[in-house]
Simulated assay, not measured.
Amino acid sequence: MAAQTPPRVPDGITHWYGDSTGSWWAIVPGRDGARLVEADTRERLAEKVGWDLRRSASAQNRDDPQARPERAVRPAPVSAPWPSPDPGPAAPSRSALAPPSAARRPYPLRDPSCCSPR
């Protein structure tokens, strides 16, 4: 039996070994932007990068109307609009909360004995 060649990170994919982390890293382009991929070995990184690239390609094919067969289009179900919330009773105004005598008094009541001359 011939020895199987370990997978390689595809050309054009930026990859490196992180001395501080002890991991292999790659930046993989994708449909939603670039992804940072980490693995413990170079071979495992190549597998993960390959998987990410295949996943991204299959997602692009799903979104491409030319790449998928025609399907019957069903209209989306129409739901009833949400009922408007009941606002409830109106909040009382500040003047309605104040005691009636406060409106007639320009100053607070004081004990007359505190202010009368002796």
Rank of each mutant, 00 (worst) to 15 (best):
L109K: 06
E47R: 11
L53T: 00
C114V: 13
R105V: 08
R74N: 02
L53V: 00
R105C: 11
D64P: 00
K48R: 15
R118V: 12
A59N: 06
S113C: 02
P81W: 02
A80S: 15
W51L: 07
D111M: 06
P69V: 05
Q66L: 14
L53A: 03
A67M: 08
L45K: 04
E70F: 03
R62A: 05
P75W: 00
P92V: 02
C114T: 15
P77L: 13
C114M: 03
A46Y: 00
P112L: 05
P92Q: 09
R44V: 00
P83Q: 10
L53P: 02
P106V: 03
S79D: 15
W82C: 06
P69A: 15
D63Q: 07
P83N: 03
R110W: 06
R105H: 14
R71W: 06
A57W: 04
L45M: 05
E70V: 03
L109R: 03
A72H: 03
N61H: 13
V49W: 04
P99Q: 05
A57G: 04
S84Q: 07
E70P: 05
A91Y: 04
A80W: 05
P65S: 12
R68A: 10
A103Y: 10
P106W: 01
E47Q: 13
Q66D: 14
A102G: 04
P99I: 05
R68V: 15
V73F: 12
E43F: 01
P81Q: 07
R104N: 12
P81F: 01
V49P: 04
D64W: 06
P69H: 13
A96G: 13
R110T: 15
R94Y: 01
R110P: 01
C115D: 09
S95Q: 11
P106S: 10
P112I: 07
E43L: 01
A91L: 15
S58V: 09
R62G: 09
A67L: 08
A67N: 09
P99W: 04
P75T: 03
L53E: 08
P87E: 03
S113I: 00
R94F: 08
R104D: 07
P65W: 05
P83G: 06
R71F: 00
A96Y: 05
R74W: 10
D52M: 12
P69M: 07
A80L: 13
A72S: 07
A103K: 13
R55H: 06
D111K: 10
P106K: 03
A91D: 13
P81H: 07
A103E: 10
A72Q: 14
P75Q: 08
P69N: 14
A90F: 02
P117I: 09
D64I: 01
A59H: 08
R71K: 11
D63T: 03
L53M: 14
P92T: 04
P108R: 11
P81C: 05
K48Q: 14
R44M: 06
P106R: 03
P65I: 10
L97I: 09
A80D: 14
P106N: 11
P92M: 12
